[in-house]
């Protein structure tokens, strides 16, 4: 059993200013997950007449991308390749103080406490992160062979769970890794070629319009990504964007 001190960001609505509050988390089983620890704390808060700490969570197995806590300054904690829900309390020590904050970025307004609005990421995808193929119009799946290497690279990029840790970890709140992962996923596949230029231009423009910051190549995003998506995809997007911009402005 662990006894911990929590410093938690509390903010009732997006209009409120919010502040850090301190909670005692006593007798926490080491086998519990981080979110189960919060469940325990919340039960105690409710029973003592308070309102529970709100946080996003759903699958609790590291794939839905809902959970989004910044733990001791690092999105999903300093452990590599992990989401918040996959952290277990055995990684903490008796007496630890844990700082829990939402995923911060201006483009992620706080909804309540640790819940933020990440719809800007959906709008980036809506701007062009897809292959425009009508249902029912597809050719046989094996009619277009794709080299295993390309398929694997596409998968590496497609593994993104859209949690926003890359943005929250970036000192500039840049959405480059998120955007690049989609550009690179679809750009690696023959099916993605017809819209390749249009896709990168519109996605990057939407990303800029949402008020995300700019990449300064510090690669905090890669380090925080629970799926360990490589910043190579950013280099690739830079290349794609440049070539698409030149074509758009000077050629066609």
């Amino acid at each position: 059993m662990l006894n911990l001190t929590l410093k938690v960001w509390r903010q009732k609505t997006s209009q409120d200013t919010g502040s850090m509050e301190t909670y005692d988390a006593k007798n926490i089983p080491e086998e519990a997950s981080f979110l189960e620890m919060l469940d325990i704390v919340n039960t105690r808060i409710i029973m003592s007449g308070g309102e529970p700490i709100h946080f996003d969570h759903d699958c609790r197995e590291g794939i839905c991308g809902s959970c989004s806590l910044t733990i001791n300054g690092v999105p999903h904690s300093k452990e590599k390749g992990i989401t918040t829900c996959q952290i277990h309390m055995r990684k903490f020590k008796e007496g630890d103080t844990i700082w829990i904050e939402p995923f911060r970025a201006r483009a992620f307004p706080v909804v309540r406490d640790l819940i933020v609005d990440r719809s800007a990421m959906d709008r980036i995808i809506a701007a062009g992160g897809y292959i425009d193929v009508r249902t029912g119009s597809a050719v046989d799946a094996n009619s277009i062979p794709i080299s295993k290497m390309d398929a694997d690279s596409a998968f590496d990029a497609a593994a993104c769970i859209g949690c926003g840790a890359c943005i929250a970890a970036c000192k500039n709140s840049s959405a480059m890794l998120f955007t690049a992962a989609k550009v690179s996923h679809l750009g690696h596949l023959p099916q993605g070629q017809p819209e390749r230029d249009k896709r990168v231009l519109s996605m990057v423009r939407q990303m800029d319009a949402e008020g995300f910051g700019n990449c300064t190549n510090q690669y905090e995003c890669e380090a925080a990504c629970p799926k360990e998506i490589s910043v190579d995809h950013i280099a690739r997007m830079n290349r794609d964007f440049t070539s698409a911009l030149i074509k758009e402005q000077l050629i066609s």
Partner: peptide, 22 residues
């Protein structure tokens, strides 16, 4: 069978063999 065609066309990166087929 149509589902697989549709998903591949959308860019779902299914596992492939070295020959490039699914």
């Amino acid at each position: 069978v149509n589902i697989i065609d549709q998903c591949v066309a959308q860019g779902v990166p299914f596992a492939r063999e070295y020959g490039g087929l699914l």
